[in-house]
Amino acid sequence: MSSAPKLAPDLQNFIKTWKDKPGNLIMVLHRVQQEYKYIPREVALYLSKELNVPLAKIYGVVTFYHFFKLKKPGRHNIQVCIGTACYLKGGGDLLLELENLLGVGVGGVTSDGLFSIEGVRCVGCCGLAPVAVVDGEVFGKLKKDKLPEIIAKFKDK
């Protein structure tokens, strides 16, 4: 069994504040993912004890909601919107092209750990379709041939 993880004090405080609030689990998981970019197993175990929630329930919740990840994503997570507007305007092709360029499938991480690709639901910029989001930066009205440029830009970051 893995030993108890050392959590950042901020995170610990957050968990303490939420500990006794009913329905806290999802809010706490959001905060954990903000810290680690995914939900590490040992943190889930820690939460199980701290919040007095069975680990199975935590995993049930984590695997139910697409937002939560059990695997660490790349340093830069490229999110391609595949909402209806973006899909109609070629969001699917952007995903395929990214897979080609990076050599990993959706949900995978490049071997250097730099990039991961994710298809996401409508990010609410339908006027800019098709859209990709990298580290919070939105790229709208995106064309396939712009992708290498975007990858290069984040490679050095």
Partner: peptide
Amino acid sequence: VWALEFIGR
């Protein structure tokens, strides 16, 4: 006991 749970969706 919570050995079993729905996993995934």
